[in-house]
């Protein structure tokens, strides 16, 4: 009983410490945001985009194709070709595009940022700047955080377009759906408003990805082995956070 109590006490403390650490990080980032370094933001966005775009494009195209292939059986047997466009569009906009974008970024960019921050601490770049009175939050952390979040949203929109185009190609090529019917079905059943939940999700995933990867970099031991540890922690934390957020938001939106 005592062992159980102390174990659960420790767990509660760990969770509270984790929540506290994220709250602290969020506070730091928000305070630094109005004065953040715009060039660092732009630099990170371009690096993040270039890094994650190929993976995002390939997964988006394959997912778009798969959604149609999976539904193809029903479409053919029930002859509901008018619904293919709607089905593919709905699934892609609401669920797959934000996931694809955030997962593509978490692998390459999130883990990369975590190990970069850990490396800057191990190599004494961050202590050196802090000793000189440089505001690290303003110069590095806030710009990178917002760059990661913005990249997820932009990549999610790109993933929307690419995946839907791939669905169209497969529907036309494999299922023989007339292109006009596919587009008409997309047009008739999907409103611009249908893109909103997906974008809200992408934004939420982006914020979680930014916070988890920076936190992993800041929490790792400030020595060479911390660099790999930060990348691993970042991956685990972001995947957990993104899937948990996905469940929560799917219920809400």
């Amino acid at each position: 009983m005592r062992a159980f109590l102390s174990a659960s006490g420790r767990l509660v403390l760990r969770v509270l410490r984790g929540v506290g650490a994220y709250a602290l990080l969020a506070g730091r980032l928000l305070i630094a945001t109005p004065r953040m370094d715009g060039r660092e933001w732009l630099r990170t966005v371009s690096i993040a985009g270039v890094d994650a775009l190929p993976l995002c494009l390939v997964t988006a195209a394959l997912t778009g194709a798969l959604v149609v292939i999976q539904t193809g059986f029903y479409v053919e047997s029930y002859g509901v070709t008018s619904l293919v466009g709607w089905g593919a569009g709905y699934a892609l906009f609401h669920e797959f595009a934000p996931l694809i974008a955030s997962l593509a970024l978490s692998g390459r960019v999130g883990a990369g940022q975590a190990s970069d921050i850990a490396g800057l601490r191990a190599g004494e770049q961050l202590p050196a700047l802090e000793a000189l009175g440089v505001d690290i939050d303003r110069a590095l952390l806030a710009p990178r955080f917002w760059a990661i979040a913005a990249s997820v949203v932009v990549l999610a929109v790109i993933a929307d377009v690419v995946a839907l185009s791939a669905s169209l190609l497969v529907a036309v090529g494999l299922l023989g759906v007339p292109p006009g019917a596919f587009l008409a079905s997309v047009h008739a059943s999907l409103r611009v408003a249908d893109a909103v939940p997906g974008i809200v999700k992408a934004a939420a995933f982006g914020l979680a990805l930014g916070a988890c990867s920076l936190r992993a970099g800041l929490a790792a031991p400030a020595e060479a082995r911390g660099v790999g540890a930060a990348a691993r922690r970042s991956l685990v934390a972001t995947l957990t956070a993104i899937l948990a957020l996905d469940m929560a938001l799917t219920g809400l939106l």
């Binding site: 660092e40 630099r43 190599g123 770049q125 050196a128 700047l129 000793a131 000189l132 009175g133």
Partner: peptide
């Protein structure tokens, strides 16, 4: 704050 500066043995510059 900013009243002290240290040059580290390792150069501690940002590569970006």
């Amino acid at each position: 704050p900013g009243g002290l500066g240290m040059v580290f043995q390792r150069d501690a510059l940002l590569d970006s």
